[in-house]
Design a binder for these strands. Structure first.
Lengths: 185, 185
DNA sequence: TTTTAATATATGATTAGACATATATAATAT
DNA sequence: ATATTATATATGTCTAATCATATATTAAAA
């Protein structure tokens, strides 16, 4: 239930409607925690039921009314507790690596195409990470905490470092394929 | 449904029972695709229903009988098709990075403890990756293909490279925390 | 003027995966 | 003798997440 705590995290900065939360996820943590719109609304209902948030309907003239959610003191405690607590060991799944694992069944040409596709995707991913600092600056002004912004930047650093590492690996694989250094039998 | 294709991949090497497949997953692709025992048995049933595998009961004297699954020609085609086909863009979730993103709410001491925990886990993960080449050698003898083994090794390289990159990042974060280089407000 | 886009919330259905548990056989260890 | 471990398969239940779709309002664009 990390989504619950991620949502509490944002609500600890300021109140949000579901629609605003979705947009906020999309331009901050999307690269390591994409959030589904339907799930956000359902989880807001859960947070309210848990007593971790309260809801207020805000009438708007120029737009449809919205439901704004406020974190409660119990919510803040739950968040702090979760942040300080060790996570159960997570495991990551990668369908790409399954394709790599069995790529011996492809021709060298097909394998090369596969790795070049991956490299292209990772380069695009890296490029999109480079856009994030601007968004962080905007949120920093909003939240007014350079400490918070520091840790946001760390998640970006993580993304850049690990993406670069994967890209270097991909490029070395591509090299080996091009140089016919891959066993045929 | 990557699990289905991963299972087809192993079945393309040789027939397996569900129990044997589970063991094989555990010492080959576990680090990027952990497989649940129950799911393996259910997916074997699906593969059979799809016409991608057939089943034969093998009586054993010294052990309980087993159901051995054989890939069909249709299964091989499905596997080759999937391997050559671009995957829909995958997204990775990381609860750890959610904790990092909101770690500004912790004290420096708590944050330091968190990052040192992560570093410990990644070091342990790296150590376990170093054990894999032996297993790969064993399977290489079984499958008798240095080409297959080459691609298995690539997934290991990937794990080592990206884990090292994350570890370097973690160590730089730990440094900054120890040197009081993290903004307080 | 009609359509499209943005804002806003909600529900129904499905799936992949996780977790618990049940059952059974045979070998081994205490 | 008894308990544990390894081998072997199976089912029930739950949850997180996905996908499709529905509804409604207002502004902007065609």
């Amino acid at each position: 239930m990390s989504l619950k705590y991620a949502m509490l995290g944002f609500l600890s900065y300021q109140p949000f409607s579901g629609y605003e939360l979705k947009a906020t996820f999309d331009d901050s943590v999307r690269h390591f925690w994409p959030a589904d719109q339907a799930q956000i609304y359902r989880t807001l209902a859960e947070l309210t039921k848990d007593g971790w948030a309260t809801m207020e309907v805000v009438p708007q003239e120029d737009r449809p009314n919205k439901k704004v959610y406020y974190i409660t003191e119990a919510g803040r405690e739950a968040l702090r507790g979760w942040l300080a607590k060790p996570l159960p060991l997570q495991d990551h799944r990668s369908a790409e690596l399954i394709q790599v694992f069995f790529a011996g069944q492809l021709t060298d040409e097909q394998a090369l195409a596969m790795f070049e596709r991956f490299a292209q995707e990772y380069r695009a991913g890296l490029a999109s990470l480079y856009q994030i600092p601007e968004q962080i600056k905007a949120y920093e002004d909003m939240v007014g905490s350079s400490r918070e912004a520091f840790f946001w930047m760390l998640t970006l650093e993580h993304g850049i470092h690990s993406t670069r590492a994967v890209l270097e690996w991909l490029e070395s694989v591509i090299e080996r394929l091009k140089n016919k250094q891959v066993p045929q039998g």
